[in-house]
Simulated assay, not measured.
Amino acid sequence: MIKIVFALFFVGCLGSSGQSSGQFYSSNACTCDQLSYESDCTKMGLQCTWNGTSCSTLDCNLITDATACAANLKCMWTPNSSGGSSCKTFTFCSQLTGATQVACLQMSNNCPFTDGTKCGSSNQLHSCSHLTASQYCEGYISQDGICMWRDSTGCTAATECAPLTLAECNSAKYGCKYTNNVCSQQLCSDYTTQQTCTFVMETINKGVYQLCSWDSTAGKCQIAQNYGGLGQGNCYSTTLGTARWVSTSAGGECLSCYAQTLFVFIIALFIIMI
């Protein structure tokens, strides 16, 4: 459960751009039609298709993978008449049934809520303080972030690294580090090689990331002031699919997609960590 919980820290709840400061937000995920290069289009997995000149969203009925279907906000993975399941055009969360949030999310990323039977949208989520027992609190996905239970404070949202246990801290990849028996914020300066100097999660419950850049002269990793250090080969991947490479008269530029989609889960990480 802990690994599931912290994979879901990649929930994005913000919709603004941080390009000028070197920040990016998981809520600004690129859509297929924003991608101009085949290499970026294919990195979207089974959500997009490349026709030789442009990238477009794959029709829901052509998606045969449950994970890719659920991750595509235009689609939902539902039972069909033959007794199996298939990918269909998304309509309403209430048409989906799931006893847990995980079950609902595995059918559609639009639907992180459940009343124990029917799934629901993000605006139906409870706040952490609404939950009064540890079995309902621990790992609950709320509008505030992921909930955690502490006997002294009850149910609260995990908003910073300091109060996290060892297991929780180690699972909050790119956001927290555990050293000297203390969980603390991961920093760009903690990376010691150019290969690992990519980004850190700046706010663990809001999907806010900070790009890092390698200073070859000083031999250290530092905060990136903008997207200028990213090229065509790593613009999309280094920003977790929130920016794309755009051709310009000067050669090209890495630009944020500004999709502003609420509750976009990086579903591949979510499934891997279950």
Results as ranks from 00 to 15, higher is better:
Ala7His: 03
Asp151Gln: 12
Val208Asn: 10
Cys93Tyr: 05
Ser108Tyr: 10
Gly52Tyr: 09
Val200Glu: 07
Asn205Met: 10
Thr31Ser: 13
Cys221Ala: 11
Glu202Phe: 15
Gly120Asn: 04
Thr153Gln: 08
Glu202Met: 14
Gln135Met: 13
Ala218Tyr: 01
Met44Trp: 02
Cys87Val: 13
Lys74Met: 09
Val102Arg: 08
Gly233Pro: 14
Asn61Cys: 08
Lys177Gly: 04
Asn205Ile: 09
Cys119Ile: 03
Cys254Arg: 04
Gly18His: 06
Phe270Cys: 13
Val182Lys: 15
Gly139Pro: 02
Cys128Asn: 03
Thr239Arg: 06
Thr198Leu: 10
Gln124Gly: 02
Gly83Ser: 11
Asn72Met: 13
Ser213Phe: 00
Trp245Gln: 02
Ile272Lys: 14
Ser129Asp: 12
Ser237His: 03
Ser134Arg: 13
Gln195Asn: 12
Lys43Gln: 12
Met1Thr: 12
Cys176Asp: 07
Asn28Arg: 06
His130Glu: 15
Gln225Pro: 04
Ile204Pro: 02
Thr57Met: 03
Leu230His: 01
Asn110His: 09
Met44Gln: 08
Asn234Lys: 04
Ala167Met: 10
Gly154Leu: 01
Lys220Trp: 02
Gln34Lys: 11
Leu262Asp: 07
Ser85His: 12
Gln232Cys: 10
Ser94Asp: 15
Gln195Tyr: 08
Asn51Lys: 06
Gln95Arg: 11
Thr67Ala: 07
Phe24Leu: 10
Met273Trp: 11
